[in-house]
Design a protein around this nucleic acid. Structure first.
Lengths: 190, 190, 190, 190
DNA sequence: TATGAATGAGTCTTCATTCAT
DNA sequence: GATGAATGAAGACTCATTCAT
């Protein structure tokens, strides 16, 4: 008489699936409205209200988990980009193109904005917003020096921030010029 | 519906001062905690609760006024920097130094963070976070081309964002290198 | 240098005009929304907020004055009808026609509804809702006996109430039949 | 935003009973004062303030539920009357007597008044005030024609309204005469 | 283990009324 | 006489969190 659930079914007896559903729902709500309440999350995840506090001892925990998930996704996305840039041996035009495409994706930009915004208001979340940066600097060391890697990272942060504030991301030409300049070897220096 | 007013003494009759006090209190609270409630503002400004809604028809209005004030202050600060850079004919080392000093000021950084954060969550506030950018690009056109001006602006946004997330701002050396690279004239292009 | 206001201008120095403007504004608001606040009345009447309490010592007074005005207007309207019926020597078809026309006027019905509604909630206002009734009974005594007059009045109240609750007033045929029946002389009785 | 809950004892676990208690309390308050606030209802029903919004998502919902209950009770009462009249084969004297008794009950009249009053101010509630009417017309079709049924219904509405406005209901004689007239068969017609 | 009923602290907001000017 | 600033009481409503079941 008991249902034999396929693994895909999110059944009441699959704690991990519930947890994931809650995190996913919370992440979606953060992206959509920025607000987060137990009730909203429960409704979105189609899970009883009590589950939200059963699986996460406070709403802050749930928010942190959701943001961590967003940070992971962002990280993955940027890792792919960094990988492709590495394959192009650090060609700034390749980076510019990939970055422009990335920033043309509204959802991505919203995720970045949510991360920045929450991190700015809660120091405990700041490491999440920096995660991609550290990863990027490391990966970039394959094709440039650390200082330049930091500067490129900072520039990318700036471009991303800009995309969250302006209606459109920085145009490809400007982007290409900026990255090219940052990557060009210094001839000599004073 | 009722109003049994004890004949308490009324406060000074200086509407403008009250308004300013409210905005100032709200700005401080935004910097300190990010949260904003009528009660907190009233307590901080030492005015009765009712005053907060008498002067600002909604909490959103009050927040907007406070953020506008912060944006103005940031704007002024950056205008001074831009002015000094203009006097140095766009010397990136000068800009780097001033920027580094600016970002070493915790309060400034917090103000920037608050602005970004609020703007990210409320589109109606985004123009405030972009205000300094537009002003900067305009002023920078005195000593560089528009594309470079945009790139410097974006880079500054990135550095600022970084300062709000990391414990310390980008070090002066890296900053100088980045700005120098962005400002160096392009030799030739493909 | 002082403006010589024509009598038509509602100038600050015409207390009676102000009073009337306030009452009129209040009546309009009662008809439109049922709610009444000092601020709304002042804004509608284009009069300073302070005037509302200067001319009426409480909001209840102002509401009462507004309802009295509505009651007067209703009274006038119905007096005209009663007059015409009297001229037709109490012909129920005439009364039915006039009544139907009266109840087809949305504003009239709203005024009646406001009066009933306020009277039901505040006994001090009940006499206003009965004012037309007393007048009607008196006028009707010209063409019918008192008992019938009362019954007609009650019936009219019912029809009016019905108009305030239903989407459309009672149809003319039904109305005519009802009034005719009520007015028909009793043949004999048990 | 916070919730330092003293570990007070929770109340009985009987949702339905709570719901009923709230509706009952709200109905009583409507009858007594016409005003309705969460606080008043909670106090009257002896439940915590939070319960009022837990069970009814808005005060309007609660008011509607209370009025629906009143409408039901009125309906029941009038159905009994209609039933008795039907048994008397539509004898107007029977109807008059029952109606007079009904309207001599202050509570009944107050319930009617509350229903009319609220319906007049909120169109969404109008169907409640019309409920008895529709039921009455239907039941009356057993002993009279539809037009007459409507007219009797309207007349009853008028008498009821009158009772809510005047100190005393219409006297039995007048009532009997009115109903008799409305029910008397028409001899001939034009 | 899981859940939904329960609740009180706290939120924004409205507003009649008062009164200094 | 007029007026608009002032204010506190109160309103509807939200919600994290607790806990009996």
């Amino acid at each position: 008489m008991s249902a034999t659930n396929g693994a895909a079914t999110r059944s009441p007896r699959d704690p991990e699936a519930r947890r994931r559903a809650l995190v996913r729902a919370a992440a979606e709500l953060i992206l959509e409205s920025g607000d987060l309440t137990h009730r909203q999350v429960a409704a979105r995840a189609k899970v009883p209200l009590g589950s939200t506090t059963y699986y996460f001892s406070s709403l802050g925990d749930l928010r942190a988990a959701a943001l961590e998930q967003l940070a992971d996704e962002i990280n993955d996305e940027l890792a792919v980009i960094a990988q492709q840039v590495a394959e192009a041996d650090g060609d700034p035009r390749v980076l510019a193109g990939l970055l422009h495409a990335y920033l043309s994706n509204t959802d991505q930009v919203r995720a970045d904005a949510a991360l920045y915004s929450n991190a700015a208001q809660d120091p405990a979340l700041r490491h999440l917003a920096l995660r991609w940066f550290d990863g990027f600097v490391q990966m970039a060391s394959a094709w440039t020096d650390p200082v330049t890697a930091h500067n490129i990272g900072v520039y990318i942060d700036g471009v991303t921030l800009h995309a969250t504030l302006a209606d459109e991301p920085l145009d490809l030409t400007t982007l290409t010029r900026g990255l090219t300049a940052l990557l060009r070897p210094r001839d000599e220096e004073a």
